[in-house]
Write a protein that binds this DNA or RNA. Structure first.
Lengths: 222, 222
DNA sequence: CGACCATTTGATATGGATCAAGCGATGTGG
DNA sequence: CCACATCGCTTGATCCATATCAAATGGTCG
């Protein structure tokens, strides 16, 4: 994958790092744009974590495959989200495009060397990591709940992130949702059907959810 | 609690922050020592997060109570561990002493202002936050597994942290373990009994576990 | 149209929760 | 110093939510 990056034709040349901007904005200026097809791997578990990524268009999942074949989805990243933050030298998760789209890529070492002596940048790195920590903590809280609560919580979270008042377009499959919530695909499907039956949501199509009664969903979201 | 801190007799006066030391070491030098009794609250959910803490002796749990009364334990902190890292201005978890012990307390603002212009310190803050992120990610992976796998994983983790080759002294109750693993106290107890029956562990007393067959435990720990 | 894949729906099995009781250590008062 | 209350833990019986196995439906693309 790092090989692909080096030879990518649409990679823009790095310029001086603008200290005043937010790290997220800086991605646009110094990063290289890469396109990914549906289900294409962006990086793999165990590979050296050389880059940080920002979703430009499309959607990305990170995941880990346990030694018995079960897959755990760590997170979904939507346009504007930064991913690839790692706690060590190597990636502990894999990342794949959930739908075709583009990602902006920045060399981690460029950021690290800049951070040396740039306290604003350091602060931004810390904030990004803390946002990721908050996400992981929220994920833990989801996983101790009932299937209904997990699905309701997931829908509310996605709705908040997509900022399309009361409706959600799910870019990921039922299997992705199941692996994120620690449920089976059948339970996710049944739970959605049940939420529809109780008129908390409507399902005009499988990937499209209308939140009919956010209060009811929020109440489930203990 | 912050009131207690101000009037604590054994609080040592802050001195200049030594930039060359690790953040963990610095706690000893600039922090105030506070003692806590069994089950005493160190801070509460929703309170402003003014301090960072390092366990000197004893053990601490962080937790959150959901609106239906369920409790989720976020983490256990043993001597040497730093806790109180927060992603916002306020604590999103509560912290309590699991057994009586002492904690070193450092004002967060002192660290933050120092970090401005001290890249080593910034790096240390980032590393601490990343360690916490890794922990939370590991917690997510535990919570999707079976009861046996959760308990086995928990024991191996505790054993690794206590560094007493092949034996674990559990400072926390079965209820604490259950609330950490997202199980009931009965299931934790039964699972331990079962692990003992299959001679993966021995239980000379309720809070003392001997790891008889770490290979078997690790195999459960998918 | 027909093949394929994602999703839903149905029937049954099961792991862990719940309800309930018993046990063992620790500590207290008579 | 022992009887007994208390608390944390274990064990037993039953129930239920979710997994598993299996089949039907529906949407998409050649």
């Amino acid at each position: 994958m790092s090989l692909m990056l080096a030879t990518r034709p649409n990679a823009t040349a790095p310029v001086n790092f603008p200290a005043k901007r937010s790290l997220g904005d800086s991605f646009e200026l110094i990063g290289a744009l890469m396109n990914f097809a549906l289900n294409e791997e962006i990086y793999g578990e165990g590979e050296p974590a050389e880059y940080l990524y920002k979703v430009k268009t499309g959607c990305v999942r990170t995941y880990k495959v346990l030694n018995d074949g079960r897959r755990q989805v760590g997170a979904f990243y939507l346009p504007g989200d930064i991913f690839g933050i790692e706690t060590g030298a190597d990636h502990t998760f894999s990342a794949e495009a959930i739908c075709s789209g583009a990602v902006i890529v920045v060399k981690r070492s460029a950021i690290a060397s800049r951070a040396m002596g740039d306290s604003t940048l350091s602060k931004q790195m810390l904030d990004m990591t803390m946002a990721e920590l908050k996400r992981a903590q929220g994920h833990v809280l989801l996983l101790i709940k009932s299937a209904q609560e997990r699905v309701a919580g997931f829908l509310l979270d996605m709705a908040a992130r997509e900022r399309k008042q009361g409706e959600v377009d799910l870019p990921m499959s039922r299997q992705d949702i199941a692996d994120y919530l620690g449920l089976t695909i059948e339970t996710v499907s049944r739970t959605l059907t049940h939420l529809e039956a109780s008129s908390a949501i409507a399902l005009p199509s499988a990937r499209r959810v209308l939140l009919r009664n956010q209060g009811a969903l929020a109440r489930l979201n203990a």
